[in-house]
Amino acid sequence: MTKDRVVVVTGGASGIGLGVCRLFARKGHPVAMLDIQEAALETESAILRAEGAKILTRKVDVSDRESVEEAYAAIRQELGPIAIVIANAGISEGIPFDDISVATWQRMIDINLTGVFHTVQAALPDMREARWGRIITISSQAAQSGAMDRAHYAAAKSGVIGLTRSLARELAAHGITVNTIPPSVVATPMAEQGIAAGTFPPLDVISQHIPIPRPGTPEDIAAACNYLASDGASYVTGQVLAVNGGMFIG
């Protein structure tokens, strides 16, 4: 894959997003790390820059279109046209359905689904002009199997899958592929927070129910992103690439 293609990763300061940023940066791509966690962005980007990577960071709230567009303007000016987008930013929380407030429901949709809409739509002019682009969304196994006490999360991530499939059809003629990865259990700070809050089982307990008996890693998801972003995946679009150790097969 050409190494001067600019990669944008939302939620790039930790977890899956950080794993993706590290992989693409170490392969020589200019990488824009976007996240709401400004301090973590600076810490992690400094490590990559010390390795020689070309990195741009911006504090971005993906639910705010103006925030996304301002970041993209900086990316185009400092790194160049956007070629690859990994729409990863998201939130999760365990709440019984009866206790989900309207505000909580809307926040989940705004970040996990509308955030993907903003992230992708704002990048399309560059990809259309180049007649080449790779869009990879990060959905969730919860969208495929449902999730206890996470109806709002599963609904938002189901929307991501539907959006991905629709865009794959709409954008194929422009040389742009669109695919989604729905992870299951991944060892990330978000999972650790859920375990600490008592809303997510310990990873060693969940691992007993996974055919490959371990939690996934950010590196596992990053490797799949690398494939989907490659020239070798030019005939792959509209697909749900489950990287889940066999936890959900369907």
Rank of each mutant, 00 (worst) to 15 (best):
R26V: 05
D126L: 04
L18H: 12
A123H: 06
G94T: 06
G94C: 09
A25P: 02
G250Q: 12
R165Q: 15
A142V: 06
I136E: 08
I100S: 03
P215D: 09
P125H: 04
P183V: 03
S230R: 05
I210E: 10
I109M: 10
E70Y: 10
V8N: 00
R26I: 06
A156P: 05
A147V: 12
T114A: 07
A222N: 09
I111R: 07
H118M: 05
L124F: 07
A229T: 04
N179W: 01
T188C: 08
L18F: 12
G115M: 02
Y227V: 04
V185I: 15
A25L: 02
E69D: 06
T10S: 13
W105L: 14
S45T: 08
T104E: 13
N88L: 02
S67I: 00
N179G: 02
A40W: 02
T188S: 09
F248K: 14
I82S: 12
T119L: 00
A154S: 06
G250S: 14
A187H: 10
A25G: 04
Q144I: 14
L23K: 03
G250Y: 09
G28A: 11
L23E: 05
V31M: 03
V102K: 14
G90W: 00
S92P: 03
D204N: 07
S145P: 03
A224T: 09
F117E: 07
V62Q: 08
G250C: 12
